[in-house]
């Protein structure tokens, strides 16, 4: 095993365990790892940004003579005036341009993709054409295309829209509709919760797999050693705390 890989394993395991100590309580080990993480991500972003300057600005101008790229560069520099109080208002010009273009690009696309397309797919005939040209409703619950499910979706979409209707009081039939909307919302939130459990557990599984991998002898049993060290540090800190002043941050 090359030295840099073994060293990497030790560093990765150490930082992973430091972050996990947060589960016990907020402590200096966690804070150390956490600030290191922010620092490294910022460093990473700067390095990548530096590279992008070459790819998007410098090279096209020098190699292809695309001088028009200097205009957005100028606008971009205006954005940075935000930190110079006297001329900070110049940054508004840059924001105005970006936000204006962004709004313009978004409007028709939102209408097309998230309004028209969604309405189009909700408005479905509540009957299906069967083989042989027979027309009748279908009730196959497992087929999302069946008439029954089209009806359920219609009711769901309409009742939730009713719930988010603020110009009328929720009384009588509107109350029934809005209440149905709430039930639909809760079912959907439940499903999302269940799905998210899966997502978060996957992340944990991923981290544990690395820890198990790095516990192998070829990595010098990094996980086991560092686990012991982390516990010792935490315990020591716990014993010393009563005398230490309360933390401020």
């Amino acid at each position: 095993m090359p030295f840099d890989v073994v060293l990497g394993a030790w560093v990765a395991v150490g930082l992973t365990l430091f972050i996990f100590t947060f589960l016990y309580e907020d402590n200096p080990l966690f804070k150390l790892a956490e600030h290191l993480y922010v620092g490294i991500s910022v460093g990473y972003t700067i390095v990548k940004g530096y590279e992008l300057v070459f790819r998007l600005i410098y090279d096209p101008i020098v190699d292809e003579g695309e001088w028009s790229r200097l205009i957005p560069v100028g606008i971009g520099i205006l954005m940075l005036t935000r930190y110079v109080p006297k001329i900070a208002w110049l940054s508004r010009i840059a924001f105005a341009f970006v936000v204006g273009v962004g709004s313009g690009l978004a409007i028709p696309r939102l209408i097309s993709s998230y309004i028209l397309k969604q309405v189009e797919d909700t408005v479905r005939p509540l009957v299906s054409v069967l083989e042989g040209g027979l027309i009748r409703p279908t009730f196959d619950i497992l087929n999302p295309e069946s008439s029954l499910n089209s009806l359920v979706i219609l009711i769901g979409v309409m009742s939730v829209l009713f719930y988010f209707f603020f110009s009328i009081e929720h009384r009588g039939p509107v109350k029934v509709a809005a209440r149905t909307g709430i039930f639909f919302l809760m079912l959907s939130f439940g499903a999302a919760f269940g799905y998210t459990v899966m997502a978060r557990m996957s992340l944990l599984i991923g981290r544990f797999r690395d820890l198990i991998e790095f516990a192998r002898p070829e990595y010098g049993r990094a996980t086991l050693w560092l686990l012991a060290v982390t516990i010792v540090i935490l315990v020591t800190a716990a014993f010393r705390r009563p005398s230490a002043p309360p933390e401020q941050e």
Binding site: Q118, D121, I153, A191, Y195, M198, R200, S202
Partner: peptide, 13 residues
Amino acid sequence: GVIAPGLYPLLRS
């Protein structure tokens, strides 16, 4: 898994 439920309307249409 966090964003999957939100993509089902796009899948359906």
